[in-house]
Every structure is written in structure tokens, then in C-alpha cells.
Design a protein around this nucleic acid. Structure first.
Lengths: 228, 228
DNA sequence: TCGAGGATTTGAACGTGTTCAAGAAGTGGG
DNA sequence: CCCACTTCTTGAACACGTTCAAATCCTCGA
């Protein structure tokens, strides 16, 4: 049976084991030598299975990347828990969530470019905007919903309801920047997060000013109107 | 000799002719059957040359796409002239420039997704953020500089100087939306442009409010600090 | 225990983008 | 006109992602 994400369900424990073996081998090779230089033959070889077997579990090389991305998101959701539990103010909550993403993703920075490349193709089910990746996207947006819910942020209701998606978009922007960032320890991206988050906070608080409020309402209306 | 864009210079008129033949054939096939389904062999065949010959003039299949993009930009710059000459107000100037882009790009909408996919890869010289595509990017940004310069827009100097690049980013966002837009005549993207432009205008005029001005200054400072 | 039927695994084969050594065609100086 | 030199052109060969028919393994009811 083929699921929406293109990952084949395995019925037996042995199958499950093979699937995990293939994925972990692939991720290791991706990390060690990059996505482009890792061939499906090499993955199969290293895992001690045949090429066709890898394709039995993962519909394509890109699906192995998608599996990595899912894994990454799970790790991120877990790593973010202590921050959401400890911090009460909006700024450190958001900054913490974004910084944690950078930490979790660090080992994969080198080949992340290829991921983004695949993700940007609208025809690909791997695109972050695609219907197929809705579950993963929703889970990710939910993290930002919790960032807001648990914070001291006071906002108009309609803006507040759109904000999780907007912050997710912000995160996509950070990822795009990160992918292009070649500095040590992605110093520039960290600087971006550190400066952008307080700015977002200030921007949001501006909506209290009457003159700004109208524009903010229109912005929210626009965002709502362009959502499918 | 290989240039920065990967396009081989041709020394003779004959070579130039062959190069154009290959490009026009490629673009026609891209339009007729999409980027993915057009093979380099088919392009060479249709153009009556050998595969290797196509690679003599264009370093890769992606470079043919880049050549298309450059062509598109030239067309856009030309098509935009009457608007910049006729309109004096910021909103119709910006809206006109963005709408014209949609018009010029319309024939290529179907395979534009693949273009965006390639463009999003940071390692690719075809990325709109890459050093190699700086000339094309600068030319594109210059259009937005003219949109602002020739308009009635009154802005703080530092914001005004960063605005062309910001509008270029807005355009990238519109392109991303456009690529995903499957409605007839990209109706949704047109609606987005029509609503977003007046909103941008209102946002910019907000910087006159003292409380907003400080945030705007910080935003400009942030943008300047993250530029390489 | 046996065998039917599903799950898993294999590896050769296909189509693709790309490379490259070799040759053909053009150019300019003598 | 000829010869060296550059430009241009060729097509076979390579590496890769992917497919698929066939083989093997596994499970479970009889």
C-alpha cells in the first residue's frame, strides 16, 4: 500500500527493520558526502540491500529526504518543549523555537540546499506548500500557535489567529537564509534571528496604534483571501 | 571561453546563429511539452545538431532555462517602459510593473515550477541570490528603483534606498505564489497583486507616524546588516 | 506439515543529463 | 595556395535515478 507521502507501509517487523536500515544509511551518507554525491546504488550497497529494495520502501531519492525532514521536525518539536515550558514572554519563546531549529538542523546544513531545491518545486509532493505535506506543515504551524498561546502577547483576535501561519512563513524565510548562509556555525543566520525576533515583537505591538490597526486588519483580510 | 553565466562565447557569426537556434528550439519545446519532458536529445534533434553541440553553447539544461529567464527579464524591462512613462503615482506604477511581469511570463507558466526549483538551490549559479546572477538581479532591482524614483512617494532616505531591493523581494514572493497558482489566467495571483500593492503603499506611508518610524528604522538597519 | 498468497527482494534494463576524445570546418598569416 | 590554429561539431560512453518482471521469503489456515 502506498501512502500519501509515498512511503510504502510495511506489514511485517522485518520490513520495518529494512526500512529503517535504508533510511539511516541514507541519512548517514547524505551527511558524510552530501545529497548529490550519494547515489541510490551507494545507499543500497552500504545498507546491504538491492537498489530495487530501497525503492520498495521509498518511492524516490527525494522521499528519503522528505523522511529526513519529517524526522527533523519531530526532533524540533521535542527539543522545543523545555523552552515552551520555561519561557513566558513572546520574544524568548519565538527566538528559542527558531534557534532550536538551527541547532537541530545543523548536521544537515551542507546538503539542505538540495532539500530546499526540491521543496520549492510546486509540482513536487515534497513542497512545503503541497497538500501531501499538510500534516507536517500543520504540525509545524502548531508549534508557533503554542508559542503565541502560552505567551504574554496581546493582539487583535483576527491577527492572532493568522499569526501562527505568518510565523511559519517567517521560519521558511529563515530557512531560506540559512540555506544560503556559509558562515561558521551559521553565525549570520543566528544574528538574523536575534535581531528579527524583537523586531517582529515591536511590529506586532504597533497594531495597538489606531492608524496602524486599519492596515493590519487589511493585511489579515488579504492573507485570508489568498488562502485556498 | 566560459563566462560567468556558463554560456560559451561564440567568436563567429555562424556560432552565434547555432546558439540562437538551440535556444529558440529549446524554449519552443519547453513551452510545448514542459521542461521535464523535453530531453536534451530532443532539443538537439529538433534543432538539427548533435547533443554535444548544445552543451558546447549551454553548459547544462538548466542554463537554457537561465537564458529563458534573461530573455524574460529583457522583455519585462521593455514592456514596462510605457507604464513608467505614463503613470506618476506609486500604486499604479508598482501594480503595473508586477502585472506586466505576469503578462510577459504567462506563456511559460506551465514549466515555471521547474525554473523556481532550480532557482532555489543555493549552490546553483542560477539561484536569484547567487553572485553569478547579480547582473540580472541588479537589472531587475533597477526597475523597482525607477518605480520609486519617478513616483510621488515620500519616504525617509534610508528606507527609500533599501526599498528597491525590498520590492524585488516582494516580486520574488509574487513569483512563488504565481508558480503555485493553478487558476485560469492566474486569477488569484492577479488578485493578490491588486490587493497587495495598495497595502504596501499604506504600509510605507505609515512610516510617517513617529512610533512606527523607529521600528522602520530598525528594520532598515536589520536589512542592511544581513546583506553580505 | 504443506501450500497458497501476500510481502519482500533482486538486479538487469531503460531513459536521462552530461562528458570527452576525436574529427570537421573555418580563419588568417605567409 | 597552404599550413597551423582556433572554433565548432559529433556521437559514443558514462553515471545516475528509476522501473519492473521474476525470484525468494514469510505467514497462516487447512
Amino acid at each position: 500500500m502506498i501512502t500519501l507521502t509515498g512511503v510504502t507501509d510495511s506489514a511485517t517487523a522485518k520490513g520495518e527493520q529494512t526500512r529503517e536500515l535504508i533510511l539511516s544509511t541514507a541519512l548517514r551518507l547524505f551527511r558524510e558526502q552530501g545529497y548529490g554525491k550519494t547515489t541510490m546504488r551507494a545507499i543500497a550497497n552500504e545498507a546491504g540491500v538491492s537498489v530495487g529494495n530501497a525503492y520498495y520502501y521509498y518511492g524516490s531519492k527525494d522521499h528519503l529526504m522528505q523522511a529526513y525532514y519529517d524526522l527533523l521536525q519531530d526532533q524540533h518539536r521535542e527539543a522545543v518543549e523545555p523552552i515552551l515550558a520555561a519561557e513566558k514572554a513572546f520574544v524568548p519563546r519565538l527566538a528559542g523555537v527558531l534557534r532550536t531549529w538551527l541547532d537541530v538542523s545543523a548536521p544537515y546544513h551542507e546538503f539542505a540546499g538540495t532539500f530546499f531545491k526540491t521543496a520549492a518545486d510546486p509540482r513536487s509532493p515534497l513542497s512545503p506548500f503541497s497538500e501531501e505535506s499538510r500534516p507536517a506543515r500543520d504540525a509545524s504551524i502548531d508549534v508557533f500557535r503554542r508559542v503565541i498561546e502560552g505567551s504574554d502577547l496581546k493582539l487583535p483576535a483576527d491577527l492572532k489567529s493568522e499569526l501562527p501561519e505568518l510565523l511559519w512563513l517567517l521560519q521558511m524565510g529563515v530557512v531560506l537564509f540559512w540555506v544560503h548562509d556559509q558562515t561558521d556555525d551559521v553565525r549570520r543566520t543566528r544574528a538574523l534571528v536575534d535581531r528579527a525576533v524583537p523586531l517582529v515583537d515591536r511590529l506586532l505591538r504597533l497594531t495597538r496604534i489606531p492608524g496602524v490597526r486599519g492596515v493590519s486588519n487589511e493585511l489579515v483580510a488579504l492573507i485570508r483571501s489568498i488562502k485556498p
